[in-house]
Nucleic acid binder design. Structure first.
Lengths: 344, 344
DNA sequence: GTGAAAGCGCTAACAC
DNA sequence: GTGTTAGCGCTTTCAC
């Protein structure tokens, strides 16, 4: 329209009312207004009323930047996901995590800063950590070495991990007892009379995958049983199919498959169905996660419940407690449960 | 451990180096440091070097709050999703949107503020809009009346809608031509010789659902055909099943079903399979969205492609352009494409 | 309980 | 080009 030139930057228009304005209208000092606005106690009811009235008529809203600058608090919490963006939204766990964090953050009124960044982009992560953008950090990381202790030390704010943090990192965390989950799956299979058990494990650079494998192997070992097969997928459906195909091609005799994630279990089921192998008559299948479709009645997968959403919610709550100086459990490890359905 | 009391608030530890410190070390003024840090041009190379050296040795990182306060810019962009949190993460479209926005925001270095809030919580939205938390807003809203024009006026920053904004709202947007998509589906079904077409539409308080319905009906009408059935789901798989069951129970004779979302189409397919009805031999099925599982070879659903991720990415780019005062297309409407697979 | 005043760390005119 | 000088709007001692 001819009114813009290309150096023009968009700016918020004329400033709204400030504390000062409210103070003037209410006939008190700025300090008093500040106290009322923040809900400080020590103020006479008369003045509180006057200030609130002024706030209302003026439509006053505190300026975040000014508040942060003066108080050294940002009012935001960051969820750091050091994963490739492509993975984040295909992995149901991350989606649950985002969802849970959102819910857990609700009571405190912190904004959620979503920081998705590839693990390689350390410079960016570091910059963020040092920038003081958030009052606290939630890290949902699955891989070893994504965020080293050293990097976390750059963060001068509390950090809570969702999922066990990488080795050597002493931050508080919330996690599922994945080892226990593995044991649970093993015990269930054994109780069902299965003895020739195949394992399709997850990527071993992920603590959760390692724990699940150790859990099931330990439990089996205690029953004097060795898995008839073990291979590794990457938690995706495609990898489940692939490993199942490999197992079938190997001529191994088996009567049960434990897949370390539901997505992989789905791949397993698909392959089995394709070959006309009956589940659970010929082969029992146990997954891990309890994603939504596992409960679907045409699938009905027996699986270890991984309450990702709840975990994330607890993590957010823990961080909020930490920030408020409230007492809080140091770290939480949830007991796994088994959802027994039709594949076993 | 006895060192904390319950009034204690967690605070970032001792302040890091400031512009002033850098200026002192580099032997220049604060203004010059500021220029260098922001990448302003007009500075002699000597000083640039000196400043950068000082920044490096001191480990200086700009303070965001101070910068925002002085510049009246926040360095953040908010993605507002006025949906119930439970819906957001089950709807693949929103997940794509978040993913796409993340990608689109990458070039500008804005932080992503994720604002999920139930449409009822208008007070909270208003507070956010007026709080000046972000330099720009991206709104991905599906429902009519979620965010009224009035509310948007509270935002003093540029807004871009992902998906056509509600009636009466004149903000720029990016969207798919849903009407065109509907026509495409109709034409395809007609070309396949189908004449007795059933429609399972989406919720009619959503512009996208309305457009899809109008598109297919219009195209059919132009061919002199009236749908043999029309009912409404809520875009979920369960509702697809339910409506399909209703259709089957109705004794209507039909040779094709158009489901307004892939999730509903999946429900349709499931029901059809359960009844032993062959697809596409007895009944052709067309969906809308092209979610990941539609391409799965055991499903292989013919569907109208809804590039949600790309849409969101374009929206983010548009907002970035707006913020930078760059020239930008006012609004974008993408042409739909049909992914022809095995269900037609 | 309340007010005065001193910054928080930075940007942006404006001079030089 | 570069430095000087005001603030940005709020919180927070510190007196009263």
């Amino acid at each position: 329209m001819g009114i813009s030139d290309d150096t023009e930057q968009h700016r918020p228009e004329g400033r709204g009312p400030t504390l000062e304005d409210v103070a003037r209208v209410a006939g008190v000092s700025r300090a008093t207004v500040s106290r009322v606005v923040r809900g400080d106690v020590q103020v006479h009811q008369d003045k509180v009323d006057a200030v609130q009235a002024a706030v209302h008529t003026l439509g006053y809203v505190p300026n975040n930047a000014a508040r942060s600058l003066a108080s050294r608090q940002t009012g935001a919490v960051a969820l750091i996901v050091p994963e490739h963006e492509s993975r984040v939204f295909t992995d149901p766990f991350f989606v649950s995590a985002i969802s849970g964090v959102t819910a857990g953050l609700d009571p405190g009124d912190k904004q959620l800063l979503l920081v998705l960044t590839s693990p390689e982009d350390r410079a960016r992560i570091r910059r963020f950590l040092r920038g003081g953008h958030a009052d606290g950090l939630l890290v949902v990381s699955h891989h070893e070495g994504d965020l080293t202790e050293e990097m976390l030390e750059e963060a001068t704010v509390p950090v809570v991990f969702i999922g066990r943090p990488p080795r050597g990192c002493s931050a508080p965390f919330v996690d599922l007892d994945n080892t226990g989950g593995g044991r649970l799956a093993a015990r269930h299979l054994l109780e069902r009379g299965r003895r020739r058990i195949a394992l399709i494990c997850g990527p071993q650079d992920m603590p959760a995958a390692v724990d699940r494998r150790i859990g099931i192997e330990t439990e089996l070992a205690e029953a004097g049983i060795t898995p008839v097969w073990r291979s590794y997928g990457d938690f995706t459906l495609a990898s489940g199919e692939r490993e199942m195909a490999a197992l079938l091609a190997s001529d191994t005799s088996f009567d049960a498959v434990f897949a370390s994630s539901d997505l992989m279990a789905l791949g397993v089921l698909k392959k089995l169905e394709g070959r006309g192998i009956r589940v659970p008559d010929d082969v029992a299948v146990v997954g891990f996660d309890d994603i939504a479709s596992a409960a679907d009645d045409t699938i009905s997968l027996t699986t270890v419940v991984n309450p990702g959403r709840r975990l994330a919610e607890l993590g957010a709550t823990m961080l909020l407690d930490l920030l408020a100086g409230r007492e809080t459990a140091q770290s939480l490890v949830l007991c796994p449960e088994l959802a027994v359905r039709s594949t076993t």
